[in-house]
Simulated assay, not measured.
Amino acid sequence: MITPAYCLTMARYNAWQNGCLRRALSGLSPAALTEDRGAFFGSLLATANHLIWADALWLSRLTGTPVPEGGGPRGLTLCPTFATWSAERFRLDGQLLLWAEKVPALALTGSLEWTASTGERHVRPLGQVLMHLFNHQIHHRGQIHAMLTAAGIPTEDTDLLFLPEQGPWL
């Protein structure tokens, strides 16, 4: 269904777009970052923290690293400041890139098994899990982008076609 090249492209896209978000969010005050903007998770920082928590959770399932603490409402406050969020975001993007650089094609034909916080066991095709991971990132970054745009804060291009590593399009 998917290939190692797809995983690497999407991990690169994720890191690029999170870098764009870091630049857009970097000049905002703590009040602006935590202001309720009517989005699903409320604020820019809460939405960005949800992505941190979800990415760390999926990475733990993919790599066997410890499960992150604080699901649900606690996941929205994992990084209380822009500086802590930025550092953690950079670290997670690096971990995802390292994983994507090494994922073997054969692994992508298998399944991923995990136990949810409720104790329920799940088994899903790994390709489907990875599509979910990357789509989830795009979805919530889109919410952040919309909040920034509504606040009049300049944002960068989000089109995958302009991923810098892809080179010029003919």
Rank of each mutant, 00 (worst) to 15 (best):
W169L: 14
V129W: 04
T9N: 13
T155N: 09
L78Y: 07
T115L: 08
A107G: 05
H139P: 05
L92Y: 04
T84E: 13
S117A: 15
Q128D: 13
S60P: 13
L126H: 01
A32Q: 15
L8S: 03
T149H: 06
N18E: 09
L78A: 08
W169I: 14
P164V: 08
L96Y: 04
H122K: 07
T9Y: 03
A116N: 08
T155F: 07
T77C: 09
F82M: 05
R91S: 14
Y6E: 06
C20L: 12
P104S: 10
H140V: 06
A100L: 07
H122A: 04
D55N: 15
L126E: 00
A54E: 05
A105F: 10
V67H: 05
S86T: 04
L59W: 07
T47W: 02
P154G: 01
N18D: 12
G72C: 12
A39T: 07
G42M: 07
W58C: 00
M10R: 15
A39F: 12
R37Q: 12
A5S: 12
L92K: 03
P30V: 00
G119K: 09
E35D: 06
A83Q: 14
Q128V: 08
P73S: 15
K102E: 10
V123F: 04
G142H: 12
M131W: 07
L170G: 07
R23A: 14
S60N: 09
A31F: 00
T63C: 13
R91T: 15
W16T: 00
V103Q: 01
S26I: 00
W99Q: 10
L57H: 14
Y6G: 07
A151C: 08
S29M: 01
R121E: 09
E88P: 01
T65G: 11
A54R: 10
T115V: 11
E101M: 11
T149P: 03
C7V: 11
A11W: 02
G71N: 03
M147V: 03
E165G: 09
Q166R: 15
N18H: 15
L78V: 10
V67K: 11
T115P: 10
F162I: 12
A5V: 10
D36V: 12
G38S: 11
T149I: 05
R12M: 11
G94I: 10
R23P: 00
E120M: 13
A11S: 12
G75A: 07
A11H: 01
F40M: 11
A11M: 08
V67E: 11
G71P: 02
C20S: 06
D93P: 01
I52Q: 04
P66N: 02
A107E: 11
L163R: 09
E101Y: 03
P30S: 03
G110K: 10
M131Q: 13
P168V: 14
E113L: 09
Q95I: 06
L163D: 11
P154C: 03
V123I: 13
G127T: 02
E156V: 00
R23M: 07
T155H: 08
V123Q: 15
Q128M: 09
R141P: 13
A105E: 15
T81E: 02
I144L: 15
S29P: 06
G71D: 13
R61E: 06
D36E: 06
R12P: 02
P68Y: 06
L57R: 09
L21F: 05
A87P: 06
G142D: 06
A56D: 12
R61K: 13
L57P: 02
L51K: 04
